[in-house]
């Protein structure tokens, strides 16, 4: 066999990296700012993910929630829902975690240049989209309008309140938010995320939508975007699967012939709309 001609890779060894800051975002979500050894940059694209591990607690794919324009460190926003993520919530500044990656395709930002960006973020879906939002804001003049549509179940689940405040105040960002179940202090809009879409005034030919949210959300958001006559070609979405290896081997994330960890997690909607089991 011609194995000698192939660059064999050590695919499964993590890089021990330091947690340099932990932010409590909500009751179930924390943001971890991580730095790789020797100050090296992750070199990721918006929308990519890493495999995060803690010895004894396993490994899991986590999307990167900071822009590549921020170098020397990167953010992971983590909801405590499993063996590894529960453990993460017990870790503190200075602790080491294992990082492999970045993996996946990410958003091809060259295709988005000059476009009006419409971000549709459902719940924790804001975390992966934040890498792209931050990127577009860092290169603000490269893009047309920036419209962010964000919906959560209740006000206590709102991620990144300080960033949201900035977005709300910036004249060059159109930010719309709604909650499903308001509390007594809530003064904003009430309703599911799809209620925010019809009132938008979009120039559909130059608008690109980036959609991330819980699995149930996609169908309804797509219907709402269709009603706005946004062409399918202008829609991108990121899918969540349990990418165990991140390198197209383990099979867990496979949807028909597609490996989410290789061909995704960001998908051009026309490529997956006929893919059963995808959304």
């Amino acid at each position: 066999m011609e194995a000698t001609t192939i660059q064999k890779q050590e695919l499964y060894y993590p890089l021990m990296s330091e947690i340099i800051q932990v932010d409590h975002l909500t009751r179930t979500e924390k943001r971890f700012i991580i730095s790789l050894p020797d100050g090296q940059s992750l070199g990721h694209k918006p929308g990519q993910f890493v495999e995060l591990s803690v010895f004894g607690f396993g490994e899991a794919p986590i999307s990167i929630s900071s822009s590549p324009t921020k170098t020397g460190q990167f953010d992971l926003t983590i909801r405590a829902t499993g063996r590894l993520t529960d453990k993460m919530h017990h870790l503190k500044t200075g602790n080491l975690v294992g990082i492999r990656g970045p993996f996946g395709n990410g958003f091809d930002v060259s295709l988005l240049k000059g476009k009006d960006m419409l971000f549709v973020c459902g719940g924790i879906g804001l975390a992966p989209l934040k890498s792209l939002i931050d990127y577009t804001l860092a290169r603000r003049s490269d893009f047309g309008r920036i419209i962010i549509v964000y919906g959560t179940k209740n006000p206590s689940e709102i991620l990144y309140p300080s960033e949201i405040k900035v977005w709300q105040e910036r004249p060059d960002v159109e930010f719309h938010m709604t909650v499903d179940r308001p509390d007594v202090n809530w003064e904003g809009k009430v309703g599911v995320i799809t209620t925010l879409i019809p009132p938008l005034d979009l120039v559909v030919e130059r608008t690109v939508a980036a959609v991330v949210g819980p699995p149930v959300m996609y169908k309804f958001v797509l219907m709402a975007l269709k009603a706005k006559r946004l062409p399918d070609e202008n829609i991108y979405m990121s899918l969540e699967r349990r990418m165990k290896c991140g390198v197209g081997k383990c099979g867990h994330c496979q949807i028909n012939h597609t490996y989410v960890c290789q061909d995704g997690p960001v998908f051009h909607y026309p490529d997956i709309k006929r893919l059963e089991e995808a959304i």
Binding site: A3, I6, K8, Q9, E10, L11, V247, K249, Q262
Partner: peptide
């Protein structure tokens, strides 16, 4: 195991 990201673990054993 050769396609995409050629995996060392497999390919080393295979040599």
């Amino acid at each position: 195991f050769k396609k995409g990201n050629p995996e060392g673990n497999y390919l080393n054993r295979r040599e």
